[in-house]
Design a protein around this nucleic acid. Structure first.
Length: 223
DNA sequence: TGGTGATCATAC
DNA sequence: GTATGATCACCA
């Protein structure tokens, strides 16, 4: 029997989230005999994976929700001293090929964000990783307005991509969603559509949620 | 000092 | 390379 079996219901997941709130990362790491890195420079996904184990998320690299049976995606939110989101949130890879006719409802952004368990965690560099505390997580779905806003950004991006303008897209575009590189380094390439309409090797990119968007979610939840 | 562009680890 | 998990590092 696993020490942290997967939660069977949303209610059960919620109780576990409440149990995690207020705990430090060293407490959580000690429970599963993990050592705490002194910084996250070489362990950028460490906190996310630590939380996955504690909540009984299906570990692994499947392109499925973290809690498949519940259809819920887990996302940690790094907070600064003002308790605001410090970083943008990665959503998924940008489809650069075979996206013709792809509808919003069939997009990875729509699916990933339809139901999310947000878990705020202290992330000030001045606080040692071990002493950082987990906040109170909550399960969220986009409001009608948020959904429409995300859709508007997504459609704008997908139009540019289908016109072969991927390389003109910068992180400045998009009100709530943005597109930035998502790769091991700048020499990684994937196939996309060039400005001439032909296939072209280009840098893989991902969709990210701006901090203003996640902060809006935090505010409406905790105000 | 905040946001954009770049990068890190790991499984397959 | 792509998928998972994100934060780092630098420049405006």
């Amino acid at each position: 029997m696993a020490k942290y079996p997967k939660p069977e219901t949303e209610c059960e997941l919620n109780s576990r989230v409440i149990a995690l709130s207020g705990k430090t990362l060293s407490q959580l790491a000690n429970e599963i005999h993990w050592s705490v890195p002194s910084n996250l420079k070489h362990d950028k996904g460490w906190i996310g994976q630590l939380i996955e184990v504690h909540l009984g998320a299906s570990a692994g690299n499947l392109s499925e929700p973290d809690f498949q049976n519940l259809g819920i995606e887990l996302k940690t939110i790094p907070l600064n001293t003002k308790h605001k989101a410090k970083e943008t949130t990665y959503v998924c890879t940008v489809p650069l090929l075979n996206h013709i006719g792809l509808s919003w409802e069939d997009s990875c952004v729509y699916h990933k964000l339809s139901r999310v368990l947000w878990l705020p965690i202290e992330a000030e560099p001045s606080i040692p990783v071990a002493e950082r505390k987990v906040g109170l997580g909550f399960i969220w779905s986009p409001s009608k307005q948020q959904m429409q806003a995300l859709r508007d950004d997504w459609e704008e991006f997908m139009e540019l991509i289908s016109l072969g303008q991927v390389e003109t897209i910068t992180a400045h575009l998009g009100e709530h969603l943005q597109i930035r590189p998502k790769a091991a380094n700048a020499s990684v390439v994937t196939t996309g559509i060039g400005h001439d309409g032909l296939r072209k090797q280009t840098l893989p990119r991902g969709f990210y949620l701006r901090t203003s968007f996640t902060n809006q979610i935090l505010k409406s939840t905790f105000q």
